[in-house]
Each structure stands twice: as structure tokens, then as C-alpha cells.
Design a binder for these strands. Structure first.
Lengths: 346, 346
DNA sequence: CCAACTATTGGGAGCGCTCTCACCCTTCGA
DNA sequence: TCGAAGGGTGAGAGCGCTCCCAATAGTTGG
């Protein structure tokens, strides 16, 4: 334990508002006004205070501040995922980067919270925590099924924005990529490449991202009067993608095109196709989704649907900050464009 | 803005200690004792309090608490990186997962902080922030050069553990993988495979992780009296790896083995080798480092040095928590074992 | 010259919690 | 029977800050 006579930079005790005030020859109130950039302070006083702050290396005590203002200057990033996957996914990484970029200059901290496994006891604890004013707002990403959390938070008055369309449909604002159009573009590309027996390795059935891409793909095939029955679901992993590809080949040996709902899945599919001696793209064309680092790290490079991951994160943050700032008439949901990137695999 | 008459779960105002006390028919002190699990409370009172807490859905106000205890129940994860890379790196992802796992059950929150670009103004702000008791401790990872931050924090009395050996050498405790041995194992494997003209694509020159692996590789070649001059540095990216490989082939066309300081670099190297018509492993053997998802997503699968990423994160957290708990005689540094995983590329 | 303002400032009351200390009420040994 | 020794409890004083309100100084108009 640290000595109660708390030490800070070069061993002096942490200065308080009071001490800054004394040093500057003004009152606490004035210092507070300067710190919070409130009007009604003479230039002279303001300058004296700033000098004192500089000299004492004063940093406001966030705890004291948030005790009275009931703001915490921190927002939570809640990841509704068994925790095991999430990180490691280039998509999530990009989003995180975007979130951070969006937060820069806002003086707010990012608190990372993994909503462990299924609801259970921990889920309730998390909800209570978030609802009790420990964060100013929350970003909820990677939801499965109709996760009640975002809705509950919103109901409790905690500003929340979902990353990815919430399945429950609760009136929670969200930001998402245009997954439907992405799936549609992928399907159309395969069709226009002359493929006739087109399958898809869809994402998890309980996530909007999986569903929307699948629906887009279906539409693309239907437009061309092609069958849409070659569907297998997979989680977002290489091995999952490989297993799904194997299953697909078993059920529909005549496949000549595959749309994988994520690059990482496509990588697995590619591996399985190669293993079984099918050439890509000659025998089977493969289209991925994400345009992540995986897309260009395999041979042949993946034709894939690009989604603006970093913008995704930035937009998410922006939306929440705007809400926190009390802005009105914010769009309830924002869809970011997706586009096809053609490379060697299809 | 939210109505000052703050609302929480189902719209009731946030309950305070006082109200719980009233509800339970005891005093604030007793409730506080129950919450903090302190002795000296009769079973009857304890139960009454717990019931009241349950009924009111009471959650302690962290701000008020930390104002008086001077603990925040949160620790910072400081990533000293231009922010652009970091995430997206499966290594970092794994560490993050480990950190989170290590934190589970400790009631502490993880606050993510990116130490933007070079020191500058922002660097000082970050340092002040961390030194002013806003977090109980800090984990600093991905340091470049002789980053002064960890040393400064330690001096200021902020418990800190570095992830990766700090180059400055400041007496900051750290956790790291045994990179030297990893490099050594990689080199020996290439040598024992009959390779005679062995190169390396080392990591950044200003990071311990890059240096240590390089030194290990050198030792491995020296043992076999092989030259150690074929060295090119690269950042941790596919494109960087490809460029480095191209450079290497230009300078040393006779290369028959390459040790890449990271799988992601190896992926780039593989791409360039393929592009130039060299077969792997027939013409050139490639060994990576990390045993990340990339290792098995390319063809041929990478022979690589595995480091226990998740354990890395867990150990980091454990070490910091132990320090926070006031444990004495903690090891100043911890080296985690690395091992060779043989696959197709070498 | 005074009332009526406005610009600037300081004082004080908490925010919700922890923690020390004094005060019970038992129980027990002498 | 009384004093000592505790276990259990509650009152009170802040932690460092914000924010309301009153006070003061400086202007202006009538």
C-alpha cells in the first residue's frame, strides 16, 4: 500500500483546488471556473490561476468532480461476446481504432467491459453497474440474439448506441455497415462471373450481421433465378470456415462459387478447397467480406466486400457523444456503405 | 442532458447508502461494513442490509468511494503506439484477452489509453493523469525506444508493470516472452534443416522484442559458424514483411532460409517469395514468430515460434494485482517460455 | 448623487461514501 | 457486586469538487 501522504510527480503531495487557489491568490470558485472554462473570470485572474496550475502540476480529482456533477467522463465499450473471440478479429480491432479516434479530444476515457458468457449473475451485475451512473454512456457491440442489454440501458436512461443492428429491435440507436447490400454485391459479382451453383457460408444465425449478409446474398441469386439453398452457417474463425466449406462440398459437390460472410471464414474455405484439390478461382470462385488484412495475405488474394471499419468506430463514438451533448434530431440509425473489391479469388 | 432527478433501472432514483440504511433499519456505518465485508457486524444486521440492497438494487457510488479511499478500482492499459497498428495485431489481441481474464473477479475495470504519437503535449497530459491517482496502477505495453513513461510512473509511486522488456532498463518490473530463446530455436531449426544461407526479417530496431529475437537468431547461426549479415528490419505488417523480403532477396539472392520476427511479417515474406517464383519450403524455408491465426491461414502453414500470448496478459495482470495487494518479494521480471511449432514452411 | 445594473468574486452547502471514535450492552473474572 | 473486556453500533468529520447565492466593485442613467 502506498503511504497515505500520497505522492505524485517528484514526490510532492497531490495538490488540490484549494491549494491552487491559495497559490493564485483567488478563491476556490474562481479556480473552478477557470478549469471548467466558465465565463465571468477576469483575464488577470484566469492567468494567475493557469500559472498556479502549471506550477503545481495540478490535475483535477476526477472522483470528487464526478461525485457532484454526476458525470464520469468515461464511456463503456461493452462487448457482448464470450470474450474468447472478439479481440483478434481484425474487424473488431479496426472498430476499436475508430472508437479511439472518435474519442480523441473529447477528454473522455474508454472503459472496456466484456459481458462474459450468458446473462447469468454477471450480466445483472454489469447492467446494474452501467445503470448506476458509473459511465456517461455505452457502446454495445457484437451482440448475439436479442440481447436485452441495450434496450435495458436505454430504458434506464443511459445513453447507448449499438454497433450493429440489434436483433431485438428495441428502439436503440445503432450504427451498422450496409450488410444487405454487401451480400447483394457479392452475389451479383459471382453471378456476373458466370457462376451458376453459388453457395454461402453465412455468419452466426443469431447475429444481425450474419442474417443481413445472407439475405442480401439470397436477393442477388433470386434476381438471377438461381437457387439459394446452399447455405451453411459458421462462426467467425478460420477453422469454422474450413469446416463449413467441407460441409458445403459434401452437400453440394457442384458448387462453383462461394460467398463467405467474413474474410476469416473465406480463409478457412480457401484452405479446405485447396485441400480437396479445387482450384480458386478456376473451379470455385470465393468472395469474402471485410477487406481485412486476411484478404491480401492469402493466395489468391480475396475478392471481398469492404466495409469501413474504422469509420464504423468513429461514427459509433460520434453518435454517442452527440447524444451526450444533448443534440436533438439525431438519426436513429446509420448505415455505412459497403463496396466490392475485386481481386484474384473471384 | 438527463434530468437531475437521475433515473436508474425502472426509473427510480439511484439509492444511496443512507437509504439502504433506513430501509434496513441500521446506520450508514453498518451498511458500509457489510458492503466492504468488514468484521464486526451481527448476522442479523448483515442479512437485513443484504435484503435492503437487493430490494433497492443498490450499487455503491464509485466516485464517492474513491474520493475517500483514494482507490479507483480501475487500472490503465497504456499502449505506447502511434495507435494505428496495435489493434489488429493478433498478438495484442491475445494479450488483451489474457489481461481481461486476469482481471476477472478482481472487481477492477480496465481503462484503455493510447499514448498517441511522440511525447509532445499529450504525453505529459497522460503522465499527469496517471500520476494523479486516477487509476490504481498501469500496464504499459508495446513500448518503443527507451520510453520514459514506465520509469516516471514508477518514480511517482504509481504501480506499473511493463509488457515487454523496457529498453530504458529503468527498474520497472516487466513480463516478457523469452524472445532470445525463440530466435535461437528458429535459427537452430533452420540450420538443422540443412539451410546454409539464412536471413532474418527482424522487428523494429527500437523495440526489445525486435532486438531480442534478432540476438537469439544471431546466436543460433554463430553456433553453426554461419554468417549473420543478412538482416533487414520491418514493422509488424504484411506489406512491411513483403518489402523486407524483396530487399533481402535483392541483397542476398542465395538465401535459403528466413526467420521472420512475427507471423504477420512471415505472411508478407511468403507472398513476396511466391511472387518471385521461389517455392516454400523447397527453395526457401520460412519460420515465423507468434503462432498466431496467420500461421495456419497461409499455405504452406507456418513453422513458427509460439509464445503464450494469453498467459502473457494474465501474468501481466497478476503481477500488477499482486503489487497492488501489497505483496512483497515479487519477481522483478518474468520471462515466459517460447517453443517451436513445426509445420510446412520450414 | 443615488438607484439600478452588470461583471467579478468568495463563502458555504453538500455530492455519497469511509473511517475514527465514542458509546452502548453483554459477558466474565475477581 | 463491580470493573474490565469486548462485540456491535451509530454519530460525525471530512475526501475535493461544483454550484448556488450573496457580496462587492465598477458603470451607467436619471
Amino acid at each position: 500500500m502506498i503511504d497515505p501522504a500520497e505522492a505524485t510527480v517528484d514526490g510532492r503531495p497531490t495538490p488540490t483546488l484549494e491549494e491552487v487557489a491559495r497559490e493564485a491568490g483567488v478563491s476556490r470558485s474562481t479556480v473552478s471556473r477557470v478549469i471548467n472554462d466558465l465565463p465571468g473570470v477576469s483575464a488577470r485572474a484566469r492567468e494567475a490561476v493557469n500559472r498556479a496550475i502549471e506550477r503545481l502540476r495540478y490535475v483535477p480529482n476526477e472522483a470528487a468532480r464526478s461525485l457532484v456533477t454526476r458525470r464520469t467522463n468515461s464511456i463503456a465499450l461493452v462487448v457482448s461476446e464470450p470474450g474468447d473471440r472478439v479481440f483478434g478479429d481484425p474487424f473488431f480491432a479496426g472498430v476499436l481504432r475508430g472508437i479511439h479516434a472518435g474519442l480523441a479530444g473529447s477528454k473522455r476515457q474508454l472503459v472496456l467491459m466484456l459481458a462474459g458468457d450468458d446473462a447469468g449473475d454477471e450480466g445483472e451485475a454489469l447492467e446494474n453497474y452501467l445503470c448506476s451512473g458509473h459511465v456517461d454512456g455505452a457502446l454495445v457491440v457484437s451482440m448475439h440474439g436479442s440481447d436485452p442489454l441495450p434496450g435495458r440501458l436505454a430504458t434506464a436512461g443511459v445513453p447507448v448506441v449499438a454497433g450493429g443492428r440489434p436483433l431485438g429491435g428495441a428502439g436503440v440507436p445503432y450504427v451498422d455497415a450496409d450488410n444487405f447490400t454487401g451480400g447483394l454485391l457479392a452475389a451479383r459479382h459471382l453471378v456476373s462471373g458466370g457462376r451458376r451453383r453459388i453457395a454461402t457460408i453465412a455468419g452466426p444465425e443469431d447475429m444481425a450481421v450474419g442474417i443481413d449478409r445472407l439475405v442480401g446474398w439470397r436477393r442477388g441469386l433470386s434476381e438471377a433465378d438461381l437457387p439459394t439453398d446452399a447455405v451453411v452457417h459458421s462462426d467467425f474463425s478460420v477453422d469454422g470456415g474450413a469446416a463449413a466449406m467441407a460441409e458445403l462440398l459434401r452437400r453440394h459437390p457442384g458448387i462453383d462459387g462461394v460467398f463467405a460472410a467474413a474474410d476469416i471464414i473465406a480463409v478457412g474455405a480457401l484452405r479446405e478447397l485447396t485441400r480437396q484439390g479445387r482450384r480458386v478461382p478456376e473451379d470455385v470462385a470465393v468472395v469474402g467480406f471485410d477487406d481485412s488484412v486476411f484478404a491480401t495475405s492469402v493466395t489468391p488474394a480475396l475478392t471481398t466486400v469492404r466495409q469501413p471499419v474504422e469509420e464504423f468506430g468513429r461514427t459509433l463514438t460520434w453518435r454517442l457523444l452527440a447524444q451526450l451533448a444533448g443534440e436533438r434530431h439525431l438519426p436513429p440509425s446509420i448505415l455505412l456503405p459497403t463496396e466490392l473489391v475485386v481481386r484474384g479469388s473471384a
